[in-house]
Design a protein around this nucleic acid. Structure first.
Length: 737
RNA sequence: GCGGGCUUAGCUCAGUUGGUAGAGCACUCGAUUUACACUCGAAUGGUCGGGGGUUCAAGUCCCUCAGCCCGCACCA
């Protein structure tokens, strides 16, 4: 080390810059930084700089408009995964960018009790302990899950802090908060008043293992090979893959235009031998019968098929339950009673064959089988009294708003996907037979139904009201999240921050959540809940495969952050991540951005070593003074315009890459290298015009780069920024250039 | 059946309104007691899935074919 640089280092040490002589240490820096931001300035409200009410006047003076992102509330039933890390990286980037632009930026955090999801997780835990929710006292179960959820919630919030999330903790909401429940109940009551909510016997998706109904979105269809049997049924041949449902069949359905059966009239009856003896069957003509399918003739089982249910409704036919809630055949099945479907099916077919009723079996037949998305159990359609929301009118309003671009999707093509789904929407079953959720505020007495948190008075002598035992589909409450968290309808935040600007979430939950928020938001508030929807893709392993525990390829974002720094993790999740497409996450990538953080650190060290004394002595010009340096500044100005535009138009990956390129390959590799020659030639002579101008220019370029990189890499940029005496305010509240 | 997407360097992917093909990683060669080995320089590597069209100009727009992937609905 030369005597000269030894001098510089000693002066740096004197100024508290000695940490720059060592590599950047994220672990040491991050906690201290986050606490500093969260404290903000003395005498302000809770939440520090994350609370938009606390932003310095100098920052908001030019703009001051609200800018809101509602955080997708993570399910409070585990730790944060890579998908959460992506949303933190993107949403915090947007929030910090807008805050620096002078918006009163609010990023509102929350947590989701996640009804069925959480109950399933907890049931697995019970199973490990050799317990089961069935037979448990519901209150006891609810208390246990509550304790479990609250524990996870606070754990998860700690992890969000580790990831640098600059969300306003003073406004945090939980889906089970009393004020949230009140709004959810209000919506239920309003839908009821408006005739958009009905309770009725309808065909529902029943999972016997979980003992609950599920929405269509909570089931998954897989194509499976199932034998297709042809049976003689009186004068007809019928086809079926489900002989186990056929015990009570007494209707035979064909298309009215099917010429093969023209001699049969609607309502004709005939006697026939069937599984457990002779029956009388009735001919039904209905257009739902497909003439191309099988023989064009089918028998129907309204209790266990949505299509058959509709036919039965149209013709007012009898409906009978064949399969119990436990997934086993009922006494109507005779000797097969108590058996499970899979076991009974071939035996029933065999019995029919022995009776000479089997015509043939098509073993190549493939059909779609619906399964529970959690436990893969085959869904049994059942008829049950449930609450349904009439979706068509709600969807219509949403379609109109989306077509008018009141909500804009990134990537664009999601507009078509959403419109297609909304156009073909079915009514939504919001009743769930699980304890973990918001209880449905409804009461019954005979055929009477009352809606409200409290039962109607029962002093008329007609008996007591009975509470609906079910809970809401968790998406019914989270679908109201934007206006519920802001205190609809009278809250100050609702007036100030609704409608919000951006909804950033996973493309996977576009129907579950985003589409429903748009519908319910318009319904309840008359306005769309957000202007822009940015959808990120799935985070996958390096080889493009889905991360899963069973494959053992799950990468914990928290571990990566602890190993390489949160900034590195975040940069790695932003660069190369385009909306709607999946992003690969792997260690080498994050490591590369740790190197970048260190590169910035060393850029700072070089600049400090060469200009700190002059800065302290006040012998630096306020702006570049040579043509060469003015050109460098113009180049930076152009980059700034470019990056700003990219960020405003949601091209985060591109803005990040440009800043990375500039920082490493322009500023470090070229500008600093060139500066070495300038400084070497000038020695310590402060009157040398080239060196005089360059020292100041380097500090200006670094400051500008730090500002633009802050939303991407908040910690290292703030740490360097605060080491520069010319900066009085923290970087987090410094105006965007 | 309805709808959406992908196909660009060995790998992962960018490429914004059409204007001379880009990055990271990997690989090869070389440099360097230094702001930084968490470094620097250089080289190699692509008929942008096939074919056709529009245009002065197409990875980009249109048509068509092929392969792969995904969503929704239905399936007696």
């Amino acid at each position: 080390m030369s005597a000269e640089s030894a001098d510089r280092n000693s002066s740096a040490r004197a100024e508290g810059l000695e940490k720059f002589t060592k590599p950047y240490d994220p672990v040491e820096t991050e906690q201290r930084m986050y606490a500093g931001w969260q404290e903000g300035e003395a005498g302000k409200k809770r939440g520090g700089y994350f609370n938009p009410d606390n932003l310095p006047e100098e920052l908001t003076a030019q703009n001051g408009k609200p800018f809101t992102i509602i955080m997708p509330p993570p399910n409070a039933n585990g730790s944060l995964h890579a998908g959460h890390a992506v949303f933190v990286a993107i949403q915090d980037l947007i929030t910090r960018f807008r805050r620096m632009q002078g918006y009163r930026a609010l990023w509102l955090p929350g947590a989701d009790h996640a009804g069925f999801e959480t109950q399933v997780v907890y049931e697995r835990q019970l199973e490990k302990e050799g317990r089961s929710r069935f037979g448990m006292d519901p209150d006891q179960l609810r208390d246990e899950i509550m304790a479990f959820t609250l524990h996870n919630k606070s754990f998860m919030e700690g992890q969000l802090r580790e990831l640098g999330a600059s969300c306003d903790w003073s406004r945090e909401k939980f889906t089970l908060d009393p004020e949230i429940r009140k709004i959810v109940y209000g919506t239920f009551e309003q839908l009821h008043k408006d005739g958009l909510l009905y309770r009725g016997k309808r065909s529902i998706n029943w999972c016997w293992k979980h003992q609950t109904s599920l929405s269509d979105l909570e089931t998954e269809s897989t194509e499976e090979n199932s034998p297709f049997y042809y049976f003689n049924y009186g004068p007809f041949t019928i086809g079926t893959v489900r002989p186990e449902t056929k015990f009570g069949d007494k209707y035979v359905v064909m298309h009215p235009d099917d010429k093969r059966y023209a001699e049969w009239k609607h309502g004709d009856t005939f006697e026939t031998e069937w599984i457990n003896g002779p029956i009388t069957a009735t001919v039904i003509k209905d257009e739902a019968a497909n003439m191309e399918m099988g023989t064009g003739v089918m028998t129907i089982t309204p209790w266990h098929s949505a299509i058959d249910f509709d036919i039965a409704k149209r013709h007012n036919l009898d409906m009978e339950q064949i399969i119990g809630w436990d997934g086993k055949l009922l006494p109507i099945a005779g000797e097969f009673a108590g058996m499970r479907i899979a076991a009974a099916r071939p035996l029933i077919a065999k019995k029919l064959e022995e009776k000479g009723l089997l015509v043939k079996t098509d073993t190549e037949y493939k059909n779609a089988v619906k399964r529970c998305y959690k436990c893969n159990t085959v869904i049994e359609p059942q008829i049950k009294d449930q609450w349904f929301v009439s979706m068509k009118p709600l969807a219509q309003k949403a379609i109109e708003a989306i077509e008018r671009d009141e909500v804009v999707f990134y990537p664009e093509h999601y507009k078509k996907i959403v419109l297609h789904w909304l156009t073909n929407i079915e009514d939504w079953n919001i009743s769930r037979q699980i304890v973990w959720g918001i209880p449905i505020p409804a009461w019954y007495r005979g055929d009477e139904i009352a809606v409200g948190e409290e039962p109607p008075a029962a002093d008329d002598g007609k008996g007591e009201w009975i509470k609906d035992p079910d809970t809401f589909d968790t998406w019914f409450s989270s679908g109201q999240w934007p206006y519920a968290t802001l205190g609809y309808p009278a809250g100050e935040d609702f007036k100030n921050f609704y409608p919000t600007q951006v909804m950033e979430t996973a493309g996977e939950i576009i129907f579950f959540w985003v589409a429903r928020m748009i519908m319910l938001g318009i319904y309840r508030t008359g306005q769309v809940p957000f202007k822009d929807v940015y959808l990120h893709g799935l985070v996958v392993a390096k080889d493009g495969s889905k991360m899963s525990k069973s494959k053992g390829n799950v990468i914990s974002p928290i571990e990566l952050a602890e190993k390489y720094g949160t900034d590195a993790l975040r940069m790695g999740l932003i660069i190369g991540n385009t909306p709607g497409t999946s992003t690969a996450l792997y260690e080498d990538k994050i490591k590369a951005y740790k190197h970048f953080a260190n590169k910035l650190w060393n850029i700072a060290r070089f600049i400090f070593d060469n200009s700190h004394e002059q800065q302290q002595a006040g012998t630096l010009p306020p702006a570049p003074e040579t043509d060469a340096d003015r050109a460098l500044w113009d180049e930076m100005t152009a980059l700034t315009a470019d990056v700003t535009k990219d960020l405003e138009e949601y091209r985060f990956y591109m803005a990040g890459e440009k800043l990375y390129q500039y920082g490493w390959h322009r500023l470090a590799d070229e500008i600093i290298e060139e500066s070495k020659t300038i400084f070497a030639a000038s020695s310590t002579d402060v009157s040398d015009p080239a060196a005089y101008s360059r020292r100041a220019t380097l500090r200006l370029l670094l400051s500008q780069l730090l500002k633009m990189l802050h939303p991407f890499m908040p910690f290292v940029t703030e740490e360097i920024w605060c080491a520069m005496p010319e900066h009085t305010a923290k970087l987090i509240v410094t105006p965007w250039p």
